[in-house]
């Protein structure tokens, strides 16, 4: 922490030392730049599949994962690029996957919706809404049986909380006190369906009480606040007390996917949330407390941009898979 910082910092922010904050900011920038570059690549015809961008949701991905340890697990969603990067995935291997290259995380077989880094503890994004939730229960069972002290954090959206999988998974994780942290990224819309029309209670976190676990309803665009609550939930999971449900209220600036024409929400609403930019909010707060100056903050952003630019270049030049290998990994031998 810098020597000159002003007093009256929120305890949530004060709890993060400068190195941690810099790491968090770098990852938020990497996510933002990754998504922007992905969108640009799509426009240039370099990517043929669809994609689900998480611009605007960076504090949720980075804040929740910040207190995790290296050997902990995550399970992600179709809007999962941010979770991968937050857990330290290499953007160049993510872009290679996105471009369908043999060098990608999944050798070009998975694409945007199935990026996984199993060795790095990222058990995969998922194309099925709520698909990761029951899987997290099994990961929790493994951790408990193997007594290895790990934690599994599973992400899902507000839409997934209306799937049966959500209710079955929370119930099982709770009755067996599994080391799982459920993170709902409530970005207000399940594709076009407003959560207010899709759910009979105001908050996804309210549903935690039905499963006997703590439910935390958060400003998901506040990195420090998210990290503070995630730290508690992770500690609770690791100590054997059981799961928690964290709801990060946030917003996706872009549409659901490439086909979205934003017919279900207003420009004003989007603008309102752009003013809640999680990156700028954190930067402003750090500057206000004299923890980082503008030049230092600018350098973090520029470094991130350079890494993403290089990642795109790397991916473009990688080889495509060979059709003769089409059925190679259908079965393990």
């Amino acid at each position: 922490m810098s020597a000159h910082q002003k007093p009256n910092q929120r305890p949530e922010l004060a709890a993060l030392d400068d190195a941690t904050v810099a790491r968090a900011l770098t990852r938020m920038h990497l996510i933002r730049k990754f998504e922007e570059a992905a969108e640009a690549s799509y426009m240039r015809g370099l990517i043929h599949g669809t994609m689900h961008l998480s611009i605007g949701q960076e504090a949720s991905a980075v804040g929740t994962t910040l207190p995790l340890e290296a050997h902990d697990y995550i399970l992600s969603t179709h809007r999962g690029h941010g979770h991968c990067i937050a857990r330290g995935a290499e953007p160049k291997l993510m872009f290679a996957e996105f471009f369908g290259k043999e060098t990608g995380y999944c050798k070009g077989r998975g694409g945007s919706m199935h990026i996984a880094d199993v060795e790095g503890g990222n058990l995969g994004a998922n194309g099925i809404v709520g698909g990761g939730l029951p899987i997290a229960v099994g990961v929790g069972m493994s951790i408990k049986a193997q007594k290895n002290g790990r934690v599994c954090m599973v992400f899902f959206g507000d839409g997934a909380s209306n799937e049966g999988a959500f209710h079955e998974a929370l119930n099982m994780a709770s009755i067996w006190k599994l080391p799982v942290v459920f993170v709902c990224e409530n970005n207000k819309y399940g594709m076009s369906m407003d959560i207010g029309r899709a759910m009979a209670v105001p908050n996804v976190a309210d549903r935690a009480s039905a499963y006997g676990m703590p439910g935390h309803c958060l400003d998901g665009n506040d990195l420090a606040g998210v990290a503070a609550v995630a730290k508690q939930a992770i500690a609770r999971a690791r100590s054997g007390e059981g799961p928690s449900l964290i709801e990060c209220k946030t917003y996706r600036w872009r549409g659901h996917s490439k086909s979205d024409r934003n017919l279900y929400r207003s420009k004003e609403e989007i603008e309102e949330w752009r003013n809640q930019d999680p990156i700028r909010r954190l930067e402003d707060e750090l500057k206000a407390h004299d923890r980082f100056d503008a030049a230092a903050l600018m350098k973090l952003e520029e470094d991130a941009q350079r890494e993403i630019d290089a990642a795109v270049e790397f991916a473009r030049t990688c080889p495509d898979p060979d059709p003769k290998d089409l059925t190679r990994d259908v079965y393990a031998l």
Binding site: Y73, V118, L123, G131, L133, P134, I135, A136, V137, G138, V139, G140, M141, S142, I143, A145, Q146, C152, G164, A165, E168, A169, N171, M172, I175
Partner: peptide, 20 residues
């Protein structure tokens, strides 16, 4: 297990990919 066929099938997947 509870009567949660989807949940337990998913739990089997999660346990299997993490060493059980």
């Amino acid at each position: 297990t509870p009567i949660s066929e989807l949940g337990i099938a998913g739990a089997a997947v999660g346990a299997a990919i993490t060493g059980m």
